[in-house]
């Protein structure tokens, strides 16, 4: 027992602080594990929908449009692609290796039929739809089974892709 008396003047208790901490073990699942395993070797693996043949990257294990598993042979993709759309972000977030303002992009990788959300390191005034970009990888010795092996994308010296070639991905 303590003899410490609370101060009467503190006023009524109006707010209760309740800490919550829950620990989980998260599974990447079959499809993402395969993709991440390939990333450890510097490879980008897409998966083809058995119904319409379109290539998903990243794949979540099923074609959301047809509700079928994507369990066929993987398709290796280039680490180059086209910016479908983008945003310039001026709010900081942990873990993003770029300074504010930075660019987030939806990239259609060459050979893929879906967009990948990622970061783009470039002059924010230069970013535009159709811009050609390539992945900037971490040094090889730092590769792990992680999407973070790609630090960000960077512009490359290739002519812009025509709007019609990527407009369905916006």
């Amino acid at each position: 027992m303590s003899d410490k008396k609370p101060e009467e003047k503190e006023g009524p208790v109006q707010v209760l602080q309740t800490p919550v901490r829950l620990e989980y073990v998260f599974s990447a699942g079959q499809s993402a594990s395969r993709l991440l395993g390939a990333m450890a070797k510097g490879k980008l693996l897409g998966q083809r929908c058995p119904v319409d043949g379109r290539v998903y990257f990243p794949s979540r294990g099923s074609c959301p449009q047809h509700g079928v598993p994507l369990d066929g042979a993987p398709v290796e993709l280039a680490d180059k692609g086209t910016v479908a759309t983008y945003s310039i972000v001026r709010i900081p977030i942990e873990k993003v290796p770029l300074e504010l303002p930075y660019v987030t992009v939806q990239v259609v990788l060459d050979g893929a039929d879906t967009v990948l959300m990622h970061l783009l390191k470039c002059d924010v005034d230069k970013v535009h739809m159709g811009m050609r970009v390539q992945a900037k990888w971490k040094p090889r010795e730092e590769w792990t089974s992680s999407v973070e092996n790609i630090l960000y994308f960077e512009p490359i010296d290739e002519p812009d892709a025509p709007y019609d070639s990527f407009k369905e991905h916006i």
Binding site: L16, Q17, P19, V20, L22, V25, Q30, S33, G37
Partner: peptide
């Protein structure tokens, strides 16, 4: 075939601030 999947720890941690209203306020006071 089911292959072994990658797993990782995941923590959700936050200190919620709960306003009490008149009755709970009197209880906690």
């Amino acid at each position: 075939q089911i292959e072994k999947a990658l797993t990782a720890p995941h923590v959700i941690e936050y200190t919620y601030k709960r306003s009490l209203g008149p009755v709970l306020s009197q209880f906690f006071t």
